[in-house]
């Protein structure tokens, strides 16, 4: 990711609450983070999880409960969400990575349904009513998060930090191996990469970040509900990621913004929203398979020869480097 892109993102983030309703932008950011976490798994490791709502919603419940009933400060609540996501991710991941393809997806779905069941039945979740009245509290004991703008910039900071982490993971030596596994698992194995351990770590990281998104969402809306752990939420994040562009850094964010915006703009239409979003999805899959950002990137690559020249320049640089060494 370039510095220019970072400043653009930061600038947009700072200005957004003056243009749009801040709570709406916070919702967008929470789902964008959720989709980016999911994309780490689907886009960069090639694993389709159909149970990510368990990490998102599970973390929302536990973090919400910790803040409400134990009175922990919001920043600790958020970290608890991250931890819950990681622990659930380790448990689900350890079982799911033993299977491949559709069976992998089915195992994640089945285990996520167990989490849903717990959320329905457990005494601390509030059952059908959900966990309500989660206090936002004071950040580090100082900043009052009941002020919407304070809350907004807290959420923006979490989002940017998490997004930066994801960009770094994708770029890291570990991320490079994930891409290798996505591209050709048998070959990665034959080179000596212990594929299962890489997949498990990717799963845990993705689940932890999904948990972070869920806990943040619980603080923003001050409640955690069954919708957060429902399988339709797992489906929604798949849709966001594919719509925006799977395997691209910005795609899931754009996809999440689009879906959240559609939900809110079309809310007057009631249950027709689902139909419209479904139709959008079908068009996406049929016509622009790479998603919004994926298609734009492909377009840019076709039309800007500059890219190729940049590559050659880079290559020349490497060559120079290797020659100048003694």
């Amino acid at each position: 990711m370039t510095r220019k892109q970072w400043f653009l993102l930061l600038g947009l983030g700072v200005v957004a609450p003056f243009v749009l309703y801040p709570v709406f932008v916070m919702k967008m950011l929470c789902f964008a983070l959720f989709a980016c976490a999911f994309n780490l798994l689907l886009g960069y490791t090639g694993l389709l999880s159909f149970g990510h709502a368990a990490f998102f919603g599970g973390a929302a419940y536990v973090a919400g409960y910790a803040v409400k009933s134990w009175g922990v400060p919001p920043e600790i609540g958020i970290l608890i969400g991250l931890g819950v996501g990681a622990i659930l991710g380790a448990a689900v991941g350890a079982l799911a990575i033993r299977r491949q393809g559709i069976y992998f997806a089915m195992v994640t779905l089945a285990l996520a349904q167990i989490v849903y069941f717990v959320a329905v039945k457990a005494p601390f979740t509030g059952g059908e009513d959900g966990l309500q009245g989660i206090p936002r509290g004071r950040l580090f004991g100082i900043v009052d998060l009941n002020d919407t703008m304070n809350m907004y910039y807290f959420v923006l900071a979490i989002f940017l930090l998490a997004f930066w982490s994801i960009a770094r993971i994708i770029d890291s030596p570990f991320g490079q191996v994930l891409k290798a596994i996505r591209e050709n698992e048998a070959r990665a194995l034959s080179l000596g990469y212990d594929v299962d351990r890489f997949k498990l770590l990717a799963f845990v990281l993705s689940a932890a970040l999904a948990g972070l998104a869920g806990a943040t969402k619980a603080l923003v809306f001050q409640f955690a509900s069954l919708t957060d752990v429902h399988w339709t939420t797992s489906g929604e994040v798949v849709l966001m990621t594919l719509l925006g562009g799977v395997g691209t850094l910005f795609g899931p964010m754009v996809g999440a913004f689009t879906v959240v915006a559609l939900h809110s703009e079309l809310s007057a239409l009631g249950s027709w929203v689902t139909v419209i979003i479904g139709a959008t999805f079908i068009v996406c899959v049929l016509v622009f398979r790479r998603g919004i950002v994926g298609e734009l990137q492909a377009l840019a690559q076709r039309h800007f020869w500059g890219r190729r020249e940049a590559n050659e320049a880079e290559l020349a640089q490497i060559e120079q480097g290797s020659k100048s060494k003694p």
Partner: peptide, 14 residues
């Protein structure tokens, strides 16, 4: 990279 190891370092720079 397979030979060199250190590939689990998800926090390190590319």
């Amino acid at each position: 990279q397979a030979k060199a190891g250190g590939s689990f370092a998800f926090w390190r720079s590319g």
